[in-house]
């Protein structure tokens, strides 16, 4: 179960890095935070899981969404890649 949750976190993190739409990236980071909250709950640390759910999924996502709306939504695929 722990390995499964870790694998899901890894997959979602890679998807968040590769998404072209930054809003999608922010939502995927929120999903990653939610899965890691489940991981902490499975590892018998409900206090850490509550903190992760409140800070990572709640406040962090809100701040990141606000930043995306105030800057730009698309990723510039520059020539340096």
């Amino acid at each position: 179960m722990t390995e499964l949750l870790l694998a899901v976190i890894l997959v979602v993190a890679v998807l968040a890095m590769r998404a072209g739409d930054l809003l999608t990236s922010v939502i995927l980071v929120g999903v990653m935070s939610l899965v890691s909250c489940l991981l902490f709950l499975h590892l018998a640390a409900p206090d850490v899981a509550l903190t992760e759910a409140a800070v990572g999924t709640g406040v962090g996502s809100v701040v990141l969404i606000w930043i995306v709306f105030k800057t730009q939504r698309r990723v510039d695929r520059g020539s340096d890649r």
């Binding site: 899981a49 903190t51 409140a54 406040v59």
Partner: peptide, 16 residues
């Protein structure tokens, strides 16, 4: 489970 920090952040996210 819970505590001052977690509860405070939940209240703050309600305000947000």
């Amino acid at each position: 489970p819970g505590g001052g920090f977690q509860g405070g952040v939940v209240i703050a996210s309600g305000i947000i």
